[in-house]
Computed example of a mutant assay.
Amino acid sequence: MERPLIAVFNGPNLNMLGQRQPEIYGRATLDDVEQICIQTADKLDLAIDFRQTNIEGELISWVQECRKRARGIIINPAGYSHTSVALLDALLATDLPVIEVHISNIHRREPFRHMSYVSRAAVGVICGLGVAGYSLALQAMTDLILDEDDQ
């Protein structure tokens, strides 16, 4: 049986993890995050499509492609959380479960970071738990898929 595909998408500046503001985001790199996701997905019997982009339109195109090929989307939209209605619309159009992940606790930061458009499309939001949030999101997505399959 084919393993369910979960898209794990990362937005702008996450390619700078480990270098950019380590006091906020930690020292783990995006490659470290990808390895965490691969290991967690293997344990959960999931397939993942792990990507990062600094380009809003590219991220939106990836989200749109998920409609026909993925069972769910885990997304760290980074700065697009607070600015992109277009990303929100794309996520809503997929009719897939979405889990939003943030490495930092956006609610303890600057006021403009407290609001996320993406949260309106998300089943759940994990923030402030560092890169461990990705493995938690994969576990939660597995539970959502199993619940969906049982119905």
Rank of each mutant, 00 (worst) to 15 (best):
V118S: 00
M16R: 15
L46A: 10
T94G: 12
S61T: 14
N54G: 11
P77K: 01
F50E: 03
D147I: 09
E110D: 07
L146G: 00
A132R: 09
V33C: 12
I6T: 02
P4C: 15
D89P: 07
C37G: 10
Q139Y: 13
E65Q: 15
L14Q: 11
S135Y: 01
N105P: 02
I145N: 05
Q21P: 00
V63H: 05
E110C: 00
I24R: 14
S116G: 01
S61H: 13
R109Y: 06
Q39N: 15
V33T: 06
F112I: 10
L46H: 11
T40P: 00
L5G: 04
S104F: 07
I55L: 13
A70E: 06
F9M: 11
C127D: 11
T94S: 11
I99W: 04
A140Q: 14
Q19C: 08
S116A: 07
D42P: 02
G26H: 04
Q139G: 08
E34S: 09
L92M: 11
A90W: 02
E2Y: 15
T29W: 09
T94F: 13
N15T: 07
I73G: 02
L129E: 00
R113H: 09
A137L: 08
A28F: 11
H107M: 09
R67D: 06
R71T: 03
Q52K: 12
L88T: 05
L129I: 05
T40W: 05
N10R: 05
E2A: 15
I103K: 08
N13A: 12
Q139V: 13
N105G: 04
A41N: 05
R108D: 12
T40Q: 13
Y80E: 00
R27N: 15
G133L: 02
L30M: 14
R27L: 15
P12H: 08
I36Y: 15
L59P: 03
S116P: 00
N105Q: 07
Y134A: 12
I75K: 02
I74V: 13
Q19F: 13
I145D: 03
Y134W: 12
V8M: 07
G18C: 11
D89W: 10
K43H: 11
Q21F: 15
L44V: 10
M1L: 14
A70P: 00
G130W: 13
Y117E: 00
T94R: 12
R69Q: 06
E100N: 04
L59N: 05
I74L: 12
G26R: 06
R69S: 07
V85H: 04
G11T: 04
F50C: 01
A140G: 12
S116N: 01
